[in-house]
């Protein structure tokens, strides 16, 4: 299992202001999406990889394993764009083709460029989000969301969901363990039965726990709003300056690439 959550709390950039990190990731993502340029995508990918692995200290093995996850989806998507299938006998500039039973499969230079652009853009976009996910704990993200005046209902839901994923996971693990020590998963039939009762129990527990949480919140004067304070982070002028320079560079590269049509 990839421990994204664990890295978020232990990486070397954990003390950097979450808004700085969010702005950096999202602005880069934005530029990368606006300029559909292969150069910008590659630069973004390189930039994010270096920052995540070198600056934040995420082990490169873990990072590349994470990058491999979208890769498999990407391959399928890119293949469908890269390979042109046609029944028309119109002569195209095939780089290579195969005709069978009146259907032509092949690649053209145009389709290859398009596919490469798409692959680059997707990986670059994913690397931006991974940077954010790996360096910024969810609690910091929601704190930044609060500052950005995102509706509190949305933020509270995010926070509660996040917290209770772990509680639910722990409960599920406990139930699974107690079932398996009693041979609950010894055969396929038993496994089906045990998994069913695990799911049912999990729902009941979740319901019960939500009641208890509500009681505990009420006892502390809950009035319909989960108002909390986040720890304060220091704003770093150096970081802001660096982000500005990097983004401006990326922007100019993008503009030049657009003009020259690379």
């Amino acid at each position: 299992m990839l421990n994204i959550d664990g890295f978020a709390y232990t990486n070397r950039l954990k003390n950097v202001h979450p808004t700085e990190k969010a702005v950096f990731a999202l602005l880069t993502l934005f530029l990368c999406l606006v300029f559909s340029s292969f150069t910008v995508s590659c630069l973004t990918l390189l930039l994010m990889t270096v920052v995540t692995v070198r600056r934040a200290g995420i082990p490169y093995r873990a990072y590349f394993r994470m990058m491999a996850i979208p890769f498999s989806f990407l391959v399928v998507g890119v293949l469908t764009i890269g390979i042109t299938i046609t029944t028309q006998r119109v002569e195209q500039e095939w780089l290579g083709s195969l005709t069978a039973a009146g259907v032509t499969f092949g690649v053209t230079s145009g389709s290859i460029i398009k596919a490469a652009e798409l692959a680059g853009k997707s990986l670059a976009a994913v690397s931006c989000l991974y940077f954010l996910a790996l360096t910024t704990p969810v609690v910091d993200l929601t704190a930044a969301m609060r500052k950005l005046r995102i509706p509190s209902l949305f933020i509270e839901l995010t926070e509660l969901t996040y917290r209770f994923i772990f509680v639910l996971q722990e409960t599920a693990e406990d139930i699974y363990l107690s079932q398996s020590v009693r041979w609950g998963y010894s055969s396929l039939k038993n496994s089906y039965k045990s998994l069913g009762s695990l799911t049912a129990t999990l729902f009941l527990r979740a319901h019960h726990r939500s009641g208890m949480i509500f009681t505990a919140l009420t006892a502390r004067g809950y009035n319909g709003q989960l108002s909390v304070l986040a720890p304060e982070y220091r704003v770093s002028t150096a970081n802001i300056l660096m982000i500005t320079v990097v983004e401006l560079l990326l922007l100019s590269v993008g503009v030049i690439a657009e003009v020259k049509g690379i």
């Binding site: 917290r163 509680v167 505990a216 006892a219 720890p231």
Partner: peptide, 26 residues
């Protein structure tokens, strides 16, 4: 103030700081 028996039924936030700030903010 009540401290309940099971901490997992009392801690609603993933952040220690946020959790402690909830009561006094209310």
């Amino acid at each position: 103030g009540i401290v309940f028996q099971d901490p997992d039924s009392q801690l609603f936030s993933a952040s220690v700081y946020q959790e402690i700030s909830f009561g006094p903010l209310n």
